[in-house]
Design a protein around this nucleic acid. Structure first.
Lengths: 331, 331
DNA sequence: CTGTTAGCGCCTTCAT
DNA sequence: ATGAAGGCGCTAACAG
């Protein structure tokens, strides 16, 4: 049973309002300040967040809702967001929805019932319909990764189409005409844009052709995709992998098939994460500014909390970067 | 501004206590129940968790404190723990401490200040000194991965020493006498036990010899360790990798050096995670019962919350398993 | 089964 | 600069 203002009052003889002022940055006589501090020490006192929240209607807690944490990208974004929020006094209540839209909706309600002051999410349901419940309660929402069709709110996204363009240009520059794309799911717009961006640029000349292999998002599926694409004998000279796990799986498959990179086949990967600095030759990759994404999302939220009435919504689009390696070779 | 019991009262004409009873599982006349439900619908009412917490002293929120989420093992454990807790109505406030003990201590205070009902943690500081603050406040703690020397509390651990034994026996069985261990940090007891367990068993005969390569925990360091171990020309015929990332890095290094598994070198990995079902030949691995660990940790916590006065502490030791693959070959 | 009442711990006018 | 008093929304006796 922790102490209360009353206990401090009993020790110091000061009134509750003076004590409250101490904790909320008012001016008090130096001698009173000290005696309160002594009492705090003695009692091991900390302010009761429930009582405070009851008045202030703020929990200093943010809900984080993501599809899953097995994806390294999500896990790292999450980790960073939590850390930044925490350094501003905000706790992060984390929910995953396992790629399940129904779970997404109920997780959102769950978070709101926990009185979170805001929601940062990588939405699954791209209509954003489930988010209406948040705005109904006046809880701000920040989106990561993609916008929601019917729900305007602050967001941090990345130019995935341009990411596809960059990869295509790199291959084109080196004279490649037959490329396999390890594309992931078509109904996920980030993945789709990377792929369609690539195609858009690459197929400007129709002497060039790309084969798209759709799959899930996992390492295993990257691995399988390579096996499929290469066994089909399309004469593919390069591979574009559209996320981290797919890249890793593809790399392993290539090694296993004794395909030398870039002599036998050129490769452009996506997101370096833990891969950076390992592979030999270093992989040419499209990288997302992970840190930046996390910082921006956290900042958008913190600013929104400070100025709930700030008009309009801010959509921050960050650029991906081509990290030049040595895995793409002129044909 | 969400509604309150008073609003429901105004609509239904019922008293506050009847309404309270509705929300806390009491018996009321069917007709009253219905009219309350109608009012709830109309108001979009949800119970105010602050007010409820103020009385009940429970937040229905658990603090999760882990070193980091970039480690896939941690991320997946975390994900599962959060999910289970959530299915019991508990939110999870997640903090990482980046392997920093000072941050660990302050994160713990942070979580306690958020009024969490319990703490589930993979502790860094193995004395457990920082956890005293939790017990001082009467907040239960469940440990994952290792016990804390000076802090007795419920815990889920894994028999890491036996994991080392199993790996050693597998190599011995196949007649290997020269093994490299990709061991990770010596001062981390899980990692240390896997290694010392291995050595204990393997070096029972001194015709057998193992070379230990210490490092951090990352994929990159697994990669480097292999390069180091193999370039030293110890005549190593097998490798034991002691965590997931190290295994992955080691595998990549071997591929790159065109070492065939198991013809050129035998390998025992650790934790399959995303690797399962990919590698060819399938890797022989020591696997931790990840799901089981998460479930057990969550259950220990939930049971402790139900019976705060249950005497004694429960330490659940789970077994690792040798998942037979085809990466260890008789010499 | 329902209503009345008195707090839970903190914050905030309003006086002093 | 400090104190007194009422209320945030919900719960839990206690009465009826």
């Amino acid at each position: 049973m922790p102490g209360t203002y009353k206990d401090i009052q009993n020790i110091t003889g000061l009134s509750l309002s003076t004590i409250s002022k101490y904790f909320n940055g008012g001016n008090l006589r130096e001698e009173n300040r000290l005696s309160i501090e002594k009492a705090i020490e003695e009692l091991d006192f900390t302010v009761n967040a429930f009582a405070r929240g009851l008045k202030s209607r703020q929990s200093h807690t943010i809900g984080i809702l993501v599809p899953d944490l097995s994806s390294t990208f999500n896990a790292i974004i999450m980790e960073q967001v939590c850390e930044i929020l925490r350094s501003h006094g905000y706790g992060s209540i984390v929910c995953t929805c396992n790629g399940n839209q129904k779970a997404e909706k109920s997780s959102l309600s769950f978070l709101l019932d926990k009185m979170v002051d805001g929601i940062i999410t990588i939405p699954m349901d791209e209509t954003g319909k489930h988010l209406e419940e948040a705005s109904k309660r006046g809880t701000p929402v920040v989106l990561i990764d993609h916008l929601a069709a019917n729900f305007k709110t602050d967001a941090v996204i990345v130019n995935n189409q341009e990411a596809g363009h960059m990869a295509a240009r790199e291959f084109i520059l080196c004279g490649h005409r037959h490329i396999g794309i390890i594309a992931g799911p078509e109904d996920m717009d980030t993945m789709h844009l990377r792929c369609s961006g690539f195609l858009e640029e690459f197929q400007k000349e129709n002497s060039r052709k790309a084969w798209v292999c759709r799959s899930g998002l996992s390492m295993e599926e990257g691995y399988d995709s390579v096996k499929k694409l290469l066994s089909a004998k399309h004469g593919i000279t390069g591979l574009f992998c559209t996320n981290y796990e797919l890249t890793l799986g593809a790399y392993i498959a290539l090694q296993e098939m004794h395909k030398q990179i870039p002599n036998d086949i050129s490769v452009i990967g996506f997101d370096n994460m833990l891969l950076s600095g390992i592979l030999n030759p270093p992989l040419t990759m499209i990288v997302q500014p992970v840190k930046q994404i996390a910082v921006t999302a956290a900042e958008l939220m913190l600013e929104r909390l400070e100025k709930p009435d700030f008009p309009g919504t801010r959509i921050i689009e960050l650029e991906t970067q081509l990290l030049a390696g040595a895995s793409v070779k002129p044909i």
